[in-house]
Design a protein around this nucleic acid. Structure first.
Length: 708
DNA sequence: CTAGGGTTAG
């Protein structure tokens, strides 16, 4: 074993056998023993450390009053994770100094016993009458921030001020960490303002602190100062700066930083490669993330989870699940974040079977008790249409956070369970959980479902502000939907014109949709014109407009829309529906003839339509453009993808089983009325997830109350 | 002889 000494002399060759030569008094100078012990402590070499300790005892070099050497021994044992031994030596010291205390404290801190460190400080002051120096204070402050000891930390701050050691950089940085830990960013700014001087470490502490607490402009300030001072030097700085780019979703900036990093010659390590992957993933550049993943092949759980997350964030859900299999083959053990990403990927696919398998697994491994996993499970069940499973999970959760509440509230809203959503919101307030920006989107959606206009406005104009939240575009769009659904179209339009905000396509389409449902042709045309001005190639607008023309039987309008679509060569996404039967996903395209059982499926659809005709089903030819761009054909309706999927599921599942179908577009009017009646004649629950919401068809009606 | 900053979920 080679130990390289940091002093100017030839490297020491130290091994157990060569140490036996040291068993004579002449070789063991005190100075040499200290150097040796320091080296062994730095390397965490417990085995050799013990040998040296033993030799010191045997050779009568271990005396209780050799303070420096004993401090080295305390350091050695605590650095090797042998805290009990370190404490034992400390207890037996005849003489000790402030370094003995400092070393012991560091031992407690690094071995996770953070709460013991302030107690040691108390003992040190009261028993030995020593006043803390900069070493002691920075260690105690670090212990307080690591252990979340806010109260003790504040007391230390008082000591720091008393001693005048704030101006010591180590102490200042430890204080900054403490204030960051307690989310007191104003306190951080205060310290930065009053204490001059900053190192790379200061920059990194505050950069990460600002980032974690949403102080983005302050983080950018730090970054630009680092650039101007040329101090973007080491890996940790880059990790934090990539975090900033990821947060900003600024791909250009991220690429520039990446270039700078490459030019500076810094080599990737597992932290840095994860940070770069994460940046590319969050900035929507999945290829960049994959490139980094392959260029630094020494992966751990975190870097694996990062690449899985990058795939998930870029909607490569299947790829994320596939890569997990590779991860398992490499014997990398997943953690709670890994499971959260996987469950969210299942949610993206509505892959219930896969989600359930993962659910069983996290229950078995114990990961199910982590909030991130619980949240991901709720999301997975919500998004695969099993709102009751989500409800049960929610009520069994041991600890919940804001996200948990947001998920269940918006889950209920998307499933048309407005009452449940609002009750949950009340529960959330009763549980003293702070509602967030996202919470109110779910709440306003619920108000929309229930037609509670006044209540919605109360939340928007008063309650949100009571919680210090400024309503945003999403909330205002919910209000447009709320007014529109209640048929107050002119008010909705007035609201849009009078609210000083830049409305997006989604908001205008919400109004257009309301005009469509309420057959307000005049306003609808106006809104559609505006929408087409914003985006002349927007397929969604053409479809809604055409449906509207059809509803008021303006066939010339329908024909015009089709002509426009053809002229502008606008291709519509094909309508797809899929359903999972016994862990297998079956995909259907409208007018599908690829499926091996096409003949039987079509026969089933015809039978179902014949069965519901006596209940009042009239094929609605106007909806056709929803799924095809060609001229409408007689009988074409029968082959809409969701009808095929439902028919197939009816053929292949037991008579009591609920049916779940996922669709990539909005469900069309005709399928909607057909499925309502099919749910009645077959006595089945049919849940369809379309792009916007869930439709739960049961006994002839739908949870969306025929408005979507 | 003793002290500080880094990656993954929404």
């Amino acid at each position: 074993m080679f130990l390289t000494s940091n002093v100017h002399r030839a490297p020491l060759h130290v091994s157990v056998s060569s140490l036996s030569q040291l068993n004579s008094q002449s070789v063991f100078s005190v100075k040499y023993a200290v150097k040796l012990l320091k080296k062994l402590a730095d390397d965490g070499n417990f085995k050799l450390g013990k040998v040296v300790h033993a030799l010191l005892i045997v050779s009568n070099h271990a005396s209780e009053d050799n303070v420096i050497q004993n401090n080295c021994l305390i350091n050695l044992y605590s650095r090797c994770g042998q805290l009990a031994m370190a404490r034992h030596i400390f207890n037996r010291l005849q003489q000790r100094n402030i370094v003995s205390w400092s070393t012991l404290m560091t031992g407690y801190l690094h071995n996770g016993f953070t709460w013991e460190v302030p107690k040691l400080l108390k003992d040190m002051v009261s028993v030995d009458n020593l006043f803390p120096n900069e070493y002691i204070l920075s260690t105690v402050l670090s212990s307080c921030s690591n252990g979340g000891l806010l109260h003790e930390g504040q007391q230390c701050h008082a000591l720091v001020l008393k001693s005048g050691l704030v101006f010591h950089q180590y102490v200042k940085n430890a204080l900054l960490s403490l204030y960051t830990m307690s989310s007191d960013m104003e306190g951080v700014l205060e310290i930065l303002k009053s204490v001059p001087g900053s190192s790379n470490i200061t920059d990194n502490v505050v950069l990460k602190g600002f980032l974690d607490h949403g102080y983005i402009n302050e983080a950018l300030d730090v970054f630009s100062r680092m650039l101007s001072e040329g101090s973007v030097g080491d890996k940790i700085s880059y990790v934090n700066i990539f975090g900033l780019c990821a947060r900003l979703k600024d791909l250009k900036l991220g690429q520039q930083v990446h270039c700078r990093m490459l030019k500076s010659g810094l080599q990737l390590d597992v932290f840095l490669s994860s940070a770069v992957m994460d940046m590319y993933g969050k900035c929507g550049e999945i290829l960049g993330a994959r490139y980094i993943f392959h260029s630094y092949p020494d992966h751990n759980v975190v870097s694996w989870t990062t690449i899985l997350a990058a795939n998930f964030q870029n909607e490569c859900f299947e790829e994320a699940l596939k890569m997990f299999l590779q991860m398992e083959l490499q014997n990398v053990v997943p953690n709670e974040y890994t499971f959260a990403v996987l469950l969210h990927s299942c949610a993206g696919l509505s892959a219930l079977g896969c989600g359930k398998t993962l659910h069983a697994r996290v229950e078995k491994t114990g990961h199910g008790t982590f909030v991130v996993v619980g949240n991901a499970l709720i999301n997975m069940y919500v998004r695969s249409g099993h709102i009751e499973a989500a409800r049960a999970l929610f009520s069994n959760m041991i600890c919940r956070d804001t996200v948990t509440w947001n998920l269940i509230i918006s889950g209920f809203s998307h499933h048309g369970l407005g009452e449940d959503a609002l009750y949950m919101f009340q529960d959330m307030l009763a549980a003293k959980e702070q509602p967030s920006y996202v919470t109110f989107i779910g709440v306003l959606l619920a108000c929309g479902h229930l037609g509670r206009i006044e209540e919605g406005f109360y939340y928007l104009q008063h309650l949100m502000r009571d919680f210090g939240l400024e309503p945003g575009l999403e909330h205002y769009t919910c209000v447009v939907g709320l007014l529109g659904k209640a048929g107050k179209l002119d008010e909705a339009e007035k609201f849009m014109r009078s609210t000083p905000i830049t409305w997006d396509v989604i908001a205008w389409r919400t109004l257009l949709n309301a005009c469509n449902v309420h057959r307000n042709y005049g306003l609808g045309q106006k809104v559609a014109d505006h929408l087409l001005q914003l985006n002349p190639n927007d397929v969604g607008t053409y479809i809604l407009l055409s449906n509207m023309h059809a509803k008021v039987k303006r066939w010339d309008g329908v024909a015009k829309m089709r002509k426009l679509l053809r002229e502008r060569n606008i291709k519509k996404e094909p309508g797809l529906s899929w359903t999972e039967i016994r862990n297998e996903t079956h995909m259907f395209v409208s007018d599908d003839t690829q499926h091996p059982e096409t003949a039987q499926i079509h026969e089933k659809v015809r039978k179902l339509l014949a069965e519901i005709k006596p209940l009042g089903y009239i094929p609605d030819t106007a909806s056709v453009l929803h799924d095809v761009e060609q001229e409408q054909q007689e009988g074409y309706l029968s082959y809409h993808s969701e009808k095929l999927a439902v028919a197939y599921a009816l053929m292949k599942t037991p008579s009591q089983a609920p049916i779940h179908v996922i669709k990539n577009l909005r469900i069309c009017d005709d399928c909607h009325s057909a499925l309502k009646l099919i749910s009645k004649v077959t006595m089945r629950v049919i849940v369809v997830r379309d792009v916007n919401r869930f439709h739960s068809f049961q006994n002839g009606s739908c949870s969306c109350a025929d408005y979507w």
